[in-house]
């Protein structure tokens, strides 16, 4: 699935300051191609996550359009857009994102459970592929950062999405796990998925097909 962002811009109103508007992402355009891994780099607070959230259908741009195969996703109503996110996209959020009351296996199955669907076999395949069989019945609080990240990627892939978004997927990982995560993401791109990664890791460029830089809300690259 091809994604294109056309002249998108995001402004926020600072609630405390009333009408004081600040621009998180300046007007920009970009395209993401299937089978490619795109990396968005930049310093913290530069607007990377905001841009990715707009691309992922989580945050509506103030201006511009996000087109998936030519269709503006923000023209959909909440139910349609939610289902679209569930079935077409996978998202690896920043930081710890596991539901504490569910086991690793249940967390991986969560996107299917939200729509009352069963994907036990797929979950078991992913658990095997990501080498987390020994912790599948454990709860998130018992896991290391690397294990949580692998669980999070497995969860993003359970619906076999066409697009995969990952926000700082190696943020709290050691070198070994960082390499492992990027290899997993690259593998997904090679399988034909559109992969978009927000990171500040320099090593990410080794795996990227395209690199963008975000600086002060402006997209470069």
């Amino acid at each position: 699935m091809e994604i294109s962002a056309k002249d998108i811009k995001k402004e926020f109103i600072r609630e405390a300051a009333g009408t004081n508007v600040y621009t998180a992402v300046n007007t920009c355009s970009m395209e993401l191609k299937p089978g490619s891994l795109t990396v968005l780099k930049g310093r913290s607070g530069g607007g990377k996550t905001t841009l990715m959230n707009m691309l992922a259908g989580i945050l509506k741009p103030t201006e511009g359009q996000i087109l998936y195969d030519g269709r503006d996703i923000y023209s959909m109503n909440d139910d349609e857009l939610s289902e679209f996110r569930n079935k077409k996209t996978g998202y690896v959020p920043q930081g710890k994102s596991a539901v504490a009351s569910l086991t690793v296996r249940e967390n991986i199955l969560l996107p299917c459970m939200l729509f009352g669907e069963n994907a036990e076999d797929k979950a078991d395949d992913l658990i095997k592929r990501f080498d987390i069989e020994n912790i599948k019945n454990a709860y998130p609080e018992e896991l290391s950062g690397g294990e949580l990240r692998r669980m999070s990627i497995a969860r993003a892939l359970i619906r076999e999405p066409e697009i995969l978004f990952a926000d700082e997927p190696t943020g709290d990982l050691d070198d070994e796990n960082t390499e492992l995560v990027f290899k997993l993401l690259k593998e997904q791109a090679k399988m034909g998925k559109t992969v978009f990664v927000v990171t500040h890791e320099d090593t990410a460029e080794e795996y990227a097909d395209k690199v963008y830089l975000m600086r002060g809300g402006k997209l470069e690259g």
Partner: peptide, 16 residues
């Protein structure tokens, strides 16, 4: 809140 936000990202509508 974070858990619910994650569910929303994973495809839960506001109604859900």
């Amino acid at each position: 809140k974070k858990e619910f936000a994650v569910m929303r990202v994973l495809g839960a509508s506001r109604k859900k």
